[in-house]
Nucleic acid binder design. Structure first.
Lengths: 190, 190
DNA sequence: TCCTGATGAGACAAGTATGTCTCACATGGG
DNA sequence: CCCATGTGAGACATACTTGTCTCATCAGGA
């Protein structure tokens, strides 16, 4: 076996497995390793060969989620334009990972006592920085803390993702609903 | 044993157990029956005597959550005053059950395929009716559906409850943060 | 063709939660 | 005092998931 071929093969499979697992666990967070394996079209043995255990799988999913979020943040160019425009772009970029984010958001409740992954802290900081910029530029109100606005963004994305999967709202409205509510709230502007 | 005495004793214990379980499962959603029992100060055997199994316990918690939400809705007098005032009162009433609500909100993801409890549908309808009234009275914007606003309210309350338990925001700000974000959004009013 | 290595199927042991059961104990009423 | 009822402790079987292992198979490269 060639070394390159080996690295390539593993990388491709690993990514495919990871995305299948993300898609499944987004819908059913208690899926077993066997279900995850079947969803990825592989056997449980192979799944265990790639991920030492369920923990390792979830950690890998966490890393994937962080990675995708960081990529979304990078692609958004948070510093360009107004904070409001940047936030709109950000939610658009994050829409793809909303389901995975919703899974990890609730799953992280279980990791209490280990201290949260530093990746999340970095993401939180970048998002909070966006909200803080908006406040300093006079765009956003200053009586809602950047930390809360960040938390609310996560919460609304999770709610939106679930509402879509359960058919309570249309998928095409996802971005609009979240951005409009987060930015403007429910009240009519005069 | 007297019939009244029996009924009273069971009712009191059951309620106490239920509230202990709610408090525990709010923090650790995967707590075992044994942990739930110990948290309530009873043995696992007694817990099983009162609730046939874990399913029955969660169902009972669901019923409790629904009951408390309905009570909150009743106490709020949704029809009095402006929709905005009613919403502020509602969030205040719901604050007590936010933790339980957060637990059930995520737990319900697992009950898919059984059709959701009719109690939730009733609650959703009442909340959506409030948002609809706000829209019809010209208070709330009409481009965000009542269903989405209801969902967002759940999501924000869950986010707020978790953020508080993890110390990311202060408990005293809970009501203000949720109501202000839901009503006014992040943007400054001119 | 032969050989290497990954895979799938399945067996297997271990751990854990669950649900049921029995038994001893305590409390409270008759 | 005696008895009934609820309770706690713990044993027990069961089911489920997990993690590891073996073995047969199969595809790709030398």
């Amino acid at each position: 076996m060639s070394h390159m071929g080996y690295r390539c093969l593993m990388a491709v499979d690993r990514d495919h497995v990871l995305r299948s697992a993300a898609a499944l666990l987004t819908r059913k967070s208690t899926a077993t390793m066997d279900e995850v394996a079947r969803a990825a079209g592989i056997s449980r043995a192979t799944l265990h060969r790639q991920f030492a255990g369920r923990d390792a799988l979830v950690r890998a999913l966490e890393a994937l989620g962080i990675e995708e979020c960081e990529a979304a943040l990078d692609a958004t160019r948070l510093d360009e334009g107004t904070a409001q425009e940047a936030l709109r772009r950000l939610v658009k970029e994050l829409e793809r990972v909303a389901g995975l984010l919703a899974f990890l958001y609730t799953e992280n409740q279980l990791f209490e006592g280990e201290g949260q992954n530093e990746g999340w802290a970095r993401l939180d900081a970048r998002m909070a920085a966006l909200f803080r910029r908006g406040q300093e530029d006079g765009e956003f109100r200053i009586d809602l803390s950047p930390a809360w606005l960040t938390e609310a963004l996560y919460g609304l994305m999770a709610s939106g993702a679930w509402a879509v999967t359960e058919g309570r709202v249309a998928a095409k409205d996802f971005h609009y609903m979240i951005v409009e509510l987060l930015l403007g709230g429910a009240l009519r502007r005069e």
